[in-house]
């Protein structure tokens, strides 16, 4: 029972982080029609920035804020420097067909990932380094009894919860959120109502950059920081997003928690080596049985 509870708690806290990563992917997919494979590379880069600040004896919270802001800037930069020029080129011979139109941005995002990883390698050495937590990461003691979760777990779940509330409010309760939803749903009509589509796209990339940067900050304490540590989170985030339906924000969050629990159970009751296989099985099962995911909108195919 003890083991079961601890698997549940660590799965929930991990799942919260995966939910953030999935959320970041879904934001860009809805907003700009691109699955951003560079996303966790961006997060890795901003985590290195935070780690450098902490190394120079600045406080954790200053580093935290700086990392989130630079995550947003990096997201906007990726859009403005690569993705927007690419989307303007859509008339070229090579991008004529829908198959290539969805393939080319994927290749571009892999190039960005490569630049971020090699850049981090050049700037911050190849050796791994740890990353601190703002609060204690030992089992929480309440009334003399050690609980199966840590203060850091609570911090992670709390932070992610607040982020989700803010994001939901932004999309449902503000004019700008409405404009973003409109341009994701129907760019042509949104443009006719005076919404600047390009800016909305850049905004999606910015928000996604902040969310994934937060995911990076929260997940790194449990692994060492190195240029390729967060690749696994990308895979899990992608699977979580597909499980939830690639275009549903709520679905991606549910998918994130589901994968967190699954991975935690594989870790505890099976062996950590099976994680990749479990992810692959879940991904294939969802894609073959219910390709639109739990909450995604069903794609209309004409043939």
């Amino acid at each position: 029972m003890e083991i079961f509870l601890s698997a549940i708690f660590s799965g929930t806290s991990r799942g919260a982080i995966y939910a953030l990563a999935a959320l970041g992917l879904v934001l860009v997919w809805r907003g700009a029609g691109v699955v951003n494979f560079a996303q966790m590379g961006q997060a890795m880069f901003t985590t290195y920035i935070a780690s450098t600040l902490i190394g120079h004896h600045y406080s954790y919270w200053l580093a935290f804020i700086v990392a989130l802001i630079s995550g947003g800037i990096l997201g906007a930069f990726v859009d403005l420097s690569v993705m927007r020029p690419l989307s303007r080129k859509r008339s070229s011979n090579f991008l004529d067909s829908p198959a290539m139109r969805s393939t080319i941005p994927v290749i571009a995002s892999l190039g960005i990932l490569g630049i971020l990883q090699s850049g981090a390698g050049i700037f911050w050495a190849a050796e791994e380094r740890g990353f601190p937590t703002p609060v204690n990461s030992l089992g929480l003691v309440i009334g003399g009894k050690t609980m199966p979760f840590t203060a850091f777990d609570l911090f992670v779940i709390g932070t992610v919860f607040i982020t989700l509330v803010i994001t939901t409010y932004f999309f449902k309760g503000t004019g700008m959120g409405l404009a973003m939803r409109a341009s994701a749903l129907n760019p042509e009509v949104a443009r006719l109502s005076g919404i600047k589509i390009g800016s909305m796209r850049t905004l999606s990339w910015t928000i996604s950059g902040v969310a994934s940067s937060l995911a990076g900050l929260l997940v790194t304490p449990s692994a060492n920081l190195s240029p390729s540590t967060l690749d696994l989170i990308l895979i899990i985030g992608f699977t979580a997003a597909v499980v939830g339906g690639l275009d549903s924000l709520l679905g991606s969050v549910i998918g994130g928690f589901a994968l967190g629990l699954l991975i935690s159970f594989v870790n505890v009751y099976d062996t950590p080596e099976d994680i990749f296989l479990a992810i692959l099985v879940v991904l294939l099962a969802v894609l073959l049985i219910r390709p639109q995911g739990l909450l995604g909108s069903k794609e209309v195919r004409r043939v």
Partner: peptide
């Protein structure tokens, strides 16, 4: 049965 980013992922 997959295309584009789904296939890539």
């Amino acid at each position: 049965r997959l295309s584009g980013p789904y296939l890539a992922g």
